[in-house]
């Protein structure tokens, strides 16, 4: 279970093409911030527009629990026919927005995630821990100036797992 064997079971994160990255985006509230992350997933070919709406619905239904660390929201919904391929998107906001989380607001970085099957969801989401257990990762993403910066930060988990 836990330990080295457990880490090896995590699957790689979905690809992060340039089309799925939006730097210094403008959003006036959390809804718009999630929609930017959803649009990036759509642009990369991972999802249809209804998936973006479903990500917003998750927060309407359950609250701001997707804000899992100071400044970071992990927008996602359940797998469905509107997920065409596993996908990941990264959005940084010029002006951070409040999601309504008691400790982790405001949010300046939104990760969008879509996967086709529940199993892939669990294993690839876990891979995000390899990136963000480094406390420097969220501030580094928030300040990323180029797409290449973002891709470099988001590939850190891979090196961590191989170590």
């Amino acid at each position: 279970m836990a330990g080295a064997a457990g880490y090896a079971e995590t699957m790689p994160l979905p690809p992060l093409p340039e089309s799925a990255i939006a730097l210094a985006a403008h959003a006036s509230d959390w809804r718009q911030a999630v929609e930017v992350a959803g649009s990036a997933l759509e642009r990369s070919g991972a999802t249809l527009h209804s998936y973006t709406a479903r990500m917003v619905e998750m927060i309407d239904e359950f609250g701001a629990y997707i804000v899992i660390a100071p400044g970071l929201a992990l927008a996602h919904a359940r797998p469905g026919p509107d997920v065409l391929a596993d996908g990941l998107s990264v959005v940084t906001l010029v002006e951070p927005v409040a999601f309504g989380h008691p400790h982790n607001d405001p949010v300046g970085v939104v990760i969008g995630l879509a996967v086709a099957t529940p199993d892939a969801h669990v294993t690839s989401v876990a891979e995000l821990a390899n990136i963000f257990n480094d406390p420097g990762a969220i501030p580094a993403l928030a300040e990323a100036a180029t797409v290449a910066d973002v891709q470099r930060i988001m590939s850190a988990g891979k090196e961590e797992a191989e170590r």
Partner: peptide, 9 residues
């Protein structure tokens, strides 16, 4: 919320 997202982390 969904059982397949943040709970995995």
């Amino acid at each position: 919320g969904a059982g397949i997202g943040t709970s995995a982390i």
